[in-house]
Simulated assay, not measured.
Amino acid sequence: MSRLLVEYAAHHAEPLRQLYLRARQQAFTWLDSTQFALADFDAATQGETILVALDQEKPVGFVAWWPPDNFVHSLFVAPEQAGQGIGKALLQACLARVGRPATLKCLQANDPALRFYERQGWVITEAGDSAEGPYFLLALQ
């Protein structure tokens, strides 16, 4: 298996739209997934910096962040690739560029993601509400 992290390029858009849709359908079971659309990827990552994980030249994950605030906005891995270290590698590469402190939001109902971030050293600093449900703000110093 040949994995590589690369800067986002236009030819990654369609596979990442598909990945984002599938990953959210699987992870966000408490939401109405019929409301999810391929175009959501474009809206969610507009203006952000994106790194893409490739496996044999096929996108299998991505991380997107907003550099002015050191805010990690999205981290998604293809469901069939979960648990193989892709998310951790993407997050580490992102943090190497973003620096510290960094923050992110994680929906409270997304237990697997919360456990993942806590294992990586992130700490819950506050809670809030969003259209997708209650979330935690996490920070890494």
Rank of each mutant, 00 (worst) to 15 (best):
R3D: 13
G128V: 03
A43Q: 09
A13N: 15
E14D: 13
A82N: 12
A82R: 06
V52T: 02
I50A: 10
A64M: 04
H11Q: 15
A131C: 11
A44I: 05
F41M: 10
N70K: 15
L21Y: 15
S130V: 06
H12K: 12
L95G: 00
S74F: 11
F28A: 09
S33M: 01
E80L: 02
V63A: 10
A131K: 15
R119M: 09
Q18E: 13
M1C: 13
A10S: 14
W65A: 03
A27M: 12
T125K: 02
W65V: 04
N110L: 07
F41V: 09
L90V: 01
L51R: 02
V52Y: 09
G133F: 12
L38I: 06
D40M: 02
Q26N: 14
S130F: 03
Q56R: 10
R17N: 04
A9D: 15
A53C: 05
G83S: 08
D40T: 00
T125G: 12
R100Y: 10
P67H: 10
L104H: 01
R115D: 13
V123W: 05
P59V: 02
R24T: 08
E7H: 04
V60I: 13
G133Q: 10
L51A: 02
W122N: 02
V52C: 00
K105N: 15
R22N: 13
A13T: 11
Q92Y: 08
L91T: 00
P101Y: 03
F41C: 04
Y117H: 03
Q46N: 08
L5C: 07
N70C: 02
Q120H: 03
L114N: 14
N110R: 13
G61H: 04
T34G: 01
P68V: 03
Q92R: 07
R3T: 11
P134K: 12
K58Q: 14
P79G: 05
A10L: 12
L51N: 03
L137E: 02
L51D: 01
D55T: 10
P79N: 03
W122F: 00
N110Q: 10
L51H: 05
V98Q: 04
L137M: 09
G87M: 07
N110I: 09
D111E: 15
A127E: 15
L140H: 06
L75Y: 00
R97H: 04
S130G: 14
W66E: 05
V72S: 05
A89H: 09
T45I: 09
T45C: 11
E126Y: 01
R3L: 12
V72A: 01
Q92C: 04
Q35K: 14
A93W: 13
A23M: 04
T49A: 12
F76C: 08
P15I: 03
P79T: 05
R22F: 08
Q46W: 06
Q26F: 01
T45A: 08
L137Q: 10
Q108I: 08
A96S: 03
L91G: 00
L16G: 08
L21S: 11
A37F: 03
D129W: 12
E118D: 08
E14F: 12
Y8C: 11
C106K: 00
V98E: 01
A109S: 15
Q56D: 13
S74C: 08
D32H: 07
D32W: 02
T29G: 10
L138H: 09
F136N: 09
H73Q: 11
W66P: 06
R3F: 14
L114E: 11
K58F: 00
